[in-house]
Nucleic acid binder design. Structure first.
Length: 357
DNA sequence: TCTGGGGTCCTAGGACCC
DNA sequence: TCTGGGGTCCTAGGACCC
């Protein structure tokens, strides 16, 4: 097997939501800005979606409870997310990036992998191309991106995070292992908080530690992911840049302002979620077969329950009825409810469905 | 510190079929 | 009376991503 040398980019927009907000409203530029849930003077529920670098200087981070952010920096500009705007800007950026690559894989709203193997001849060439993409985005969108360049997706992803904001990091194949070795294992894709803690318990802190560790032990502890992690730590990743086609599920969920035991209010909220989910599937011309509900009690205990219907449907009545059936047993429990959610999956497009009959 | 909302993928067990 | 092996589908929970 002669594996062709690849050139992969990972492009990551810098503090995307807050950067877009600053662009739209220059008066907030230079101030700490936080996009997320309403902080309600420190009593708000929810988390920080994105913070700009001025806010990060106070210790604010994505995913942090908004109440904690408020305590760290009450004077920041707090904004609710404007998703329609971010999606619009995201589309424009992705259209720019797409022109530069043969293979394109969007990753969330503001990141993308590009395979530019057939567009460049060497690493220097790749760097020039990456710079060009950054420049076009800056010129057309007045936003900065950081790009990581590497021989595979894994390294490109770690590299894009290496220098931020407005960064460009090229990691040649022959330098990959050395580049990764001193970094914390948490920097690796798929090593989250839980896995990080388990690795730490084994004495594994850096990616270098992980690369040197016995893969059979990793395999017995983490299964397939263990071997995957070991390969990643050595800079190896054969996964392709692949366009994602079609969603697998559509869901909506909502956290109540206060935990509640009011069944009427809960069921009413459930109905609204069903309507939203059905509307979205209808817009995308999708039929669904499986309905799931999610319930989170006070204290964060979370359950899901699913039912697969005998046939595909897109009727809101089917959705409401099934969701209600699934949820009802959970309302008898002597705990207040924090969140409910509705999801549909086993999706088939209506067009495809027609051809089946 | 007290945890949003939108997703994907994996695992493990059970039902069911041949 | 005791009991295979492979495959698919479904469910519940959990980890991870942005």
């Amino acid at each position: 097997m002669n594996e062709k040398k690849r050139f992969i980019f990972h492009l990551d927009m810098d503090h995307f939501y807050t950067a877009v907000e600053e662009r739209e409203n220059p008066t907030i530029k230079g101030k700490p800005v936080v996009v997320g849930s309403n902080p309600k003077a420190g009593k708000g529920r929810g988390v920080v979606s994105t913070s700009n670098y001025e806010a990060r200087a106070s210790g604010i981070r994505s995913g942090m409870p908004i109440s904690q952010a408020w305590r760290l920096c009450p004077d920041a500009v707090y904004l609710p997310p404007n998703f329609p705007l971010y999606i619009q800007v995201s589309r424009e950026i992705m259209a720019i990036a797409r022109k530069y690559a043969d293979k394109f894989e969007q990753w969330g709203i503001d990141e993308v992998f590009l395979d530019v193997t057939n567009r460049v001849k060497d690493w220097a060439d790749a760097e020039v191309l990456a710079r060009q993409i950054k420049q076009e985005i800056k010129a057309k969108e007045r936003l900065t991106a950081s790009i990581g360049v590497g021989p595979n997706k894994l390294i490109a992803k770690v590299a894009s995070d290496f220098q931020k904001p407005d960064g460009l990091t090229v990691v040649r194949e022959e330098d990959a292992e050395k580049f990764l070795a001193p970094l914390a294992v948490r920097k690796l894709l798929w090593v989250g908080r839980k896995t990080e803690a388990k690795l730490k318990a084994l004495g594994i802190n850096t990616i270098g530690d992980l690369a040197r560790y016995d893969p059979t032990v990793l395999s017995s502890m983490f299964g397939v992911m263990g071997l995957q992690m070991h390969l990643s730590a050595r800079g190896l990743d054969r996964s392709e840049v692949e366009e994602r086609v079609g969603v697998k599920s559509v869901s909506h969920e909502t956290t109540f302002e206060e935990d509640t035991a009011d069944s009427d209010a809960i069921l009413q909220a459930l109905d609204s979620l069903c309507v939203e989910v059905q509307k979205e599937t209808a817009e995308q011309k999708l039929l669904f077969k499986t309905v799931s509900i999610k319930i989170r009690y006070q204290g964060f205990e979370t359950h899901t329950k699913a039912k697969t219907l005998p046939r595909l449907t897109n009727r809101v009545e089917d959705l409401k009825k099934t969701a209600r059936e699934l949820l009802l047993p959970y309302l008898d429990v002597d705990m207040k409810i924090r969140l409910i959610g509705v999801r549909v999956s086993s999706l088939v497009s209506c067009e495809k469905q027609k051809t089946l009959f």
